[in-house]
Design a protein around this nucleic acid. Structure first.
Lengths: 245, 245
DNA sequence: CGTTGCTTTGAACTAGCTCAAGACCTGTGG
DNA sequence: CCACAGGTCTTGAGCTAGTTCAAAGCAACG
């Protein structure tokens, strides 16, 4: 039972059962801890990886930069997530993994994970499931980017982070940490920085979110949820651990 | 060796090795063939599945309908794809699976697949890989929807389908079948039907694509590829089977 | 050979963009 | 403790990519 495996097991338990035996097996997985500075790239587009990292503390995001200089943030990770788990089976990275603030991570070798999974069908299924939930979230984003207006898109992002930080035990009441500039938000939502600013002002005016010094507050969750058309089902948390408000 | 398992094995071989033994195991997987009419839903958002289907002939798409009536197409499947493989681990569907034309599919029970995968780490990894490649493609779409202008988005879609149909042996020279209306294209690209029409005209005028009666022709592949900023790497085909032009 | 769905066109509108400048923080070195 | 620098946020103004609405032309299919 390392501290790292504990973080991982807690995350996995949101998606399914983890037996004592599997927990023990993960406890034997060797982790190499590291601290990553804000803005630093943990892995880059095109790079070949033979390890992945478990995020212990801090936030990361995956982003893609286009030939024309445009940047798109694809997803945001919080402690307990494994940002580059997909590289376990697709060695070549398809995007950049960047630290949004000073992060604590724990690297593990793919070969070591492979050894652990060899003995557990259940654990394999659970990690597979982790990558699938990630994919579902991507598809939800496609729908938002393709069809939702800016206000709804931004509201949806805050709603998702509200629920995820809540499930991970990182939310204090109705507030959570979100280390992103408005420019980052824009890159996430497919907007210009200027319009992200105006959209945020709009949400503030409506009393849906407050945001200062990277601290987001949701004064009226049901209203935000309905404004954003947010349905937590796509996060696929187990029923028992339901997204309690 | 059923006809169905043959289609599947050919697809899997694009992503990795399949041993004789694994091929045999898949040959014993029981398939239930079915024909689906154009426009018919094979599975719907929210539905609980205990089976998935292998697409044998025809095209399908996955789509999501918003509360406001807007529709977003998330991905397009061609023969050899398993459109709802993710339901193997996430029982609840997160979107609709629709036949874009009359389709031939082959259903298989999750319990049967589980039995087959129990005996093969390699096959498990390969199917996992299939779902991961799907996820990567979704992320590429996020980037296109968030940051690329309409012409590039549409060109990219044609480019992707050009390569995929080519790899699957479904392309005749520089032409391939694409059973989508302009309205479907619009729902795929996050555009209005009117603008999809004008964008298509633009691409025609530039001599990048021809399209009539659901038949797409790419007169000058290198030019389309560069116009779309298309890089086939994200499809993760094995090097040996590289996207030969 | 008429009906229905698909494509095309025009015209007016709007969401979101770019450019540009000013205000505001926050951390750093003197 | 102040002054300065660099990033972030905010605002205004003009522009453009893409929208909506509406109507006409086509093509496919029973």
């Amino acid at each position: 039972m390392t501290r790292q495996s504990d973080v991982l097991v807690r995350r996995l338990r949101m998606l399914g059962e983890v037996t004592k035996k599997d927990e023990q097996a993960l406890g034997c997985l060797p982790f190499r801890p590291a601290t990553i500075d804000k803005g630093h790239q943990i892995a880059s587009d095109g790079e070949l990886l033979n390890q992945s990292c478990l995020l212990i503390d801090g936030y990361t995001c995956r982003s893609k930069t286009r030939a024309d200089g445009g940047r798109q943030i694809l997803s945001i990770q919080i402690p307990g997530d494994i940002p580059d788990l997909q590289s376990f089976h697709l060695e070549r990275m398809d995007d950049n993994l960047v630290a949004l603030c000073r992060c604590e991570v724990a690297f593990f070798a793919h070969s070591d994970l492979r050894r652990v999974l060899q003995d557990s069908q259940a654990l394999t299924g659970l990690l597979w499931r982790v990558t699938l939930v990630d994919a579902v979230a991507s598809r939800v984003w496609i729908t938002m980017l393709g069809r939702a207006p800016a206000e709804e898109r931004m509201a949806h992002l805050f709603a998702e982070m509200y629920v995820r930080t809540g499930m991970a035990g990182l939310r204090r009441g109705i507030s959570f940490f979100l280390p992103m500039t408005q420019s980052d938000l824009a890159d996430c939502l497919g907007l210009s920085a200027v319009h992200a600013n105006r959209t945020l002002q709009d949400l503030r005016r409506r009393g849906l979110v407050e945001l200062e010094r990277h601290e987001v507050t949701i004064p009226d969750w049901p209203r935000l949820e309905s404004f954003a058309g947010f349905d937590p089902a796509y996060l696929h948390y187990r029923d028992e651990t339901r997204t309690a408000a």
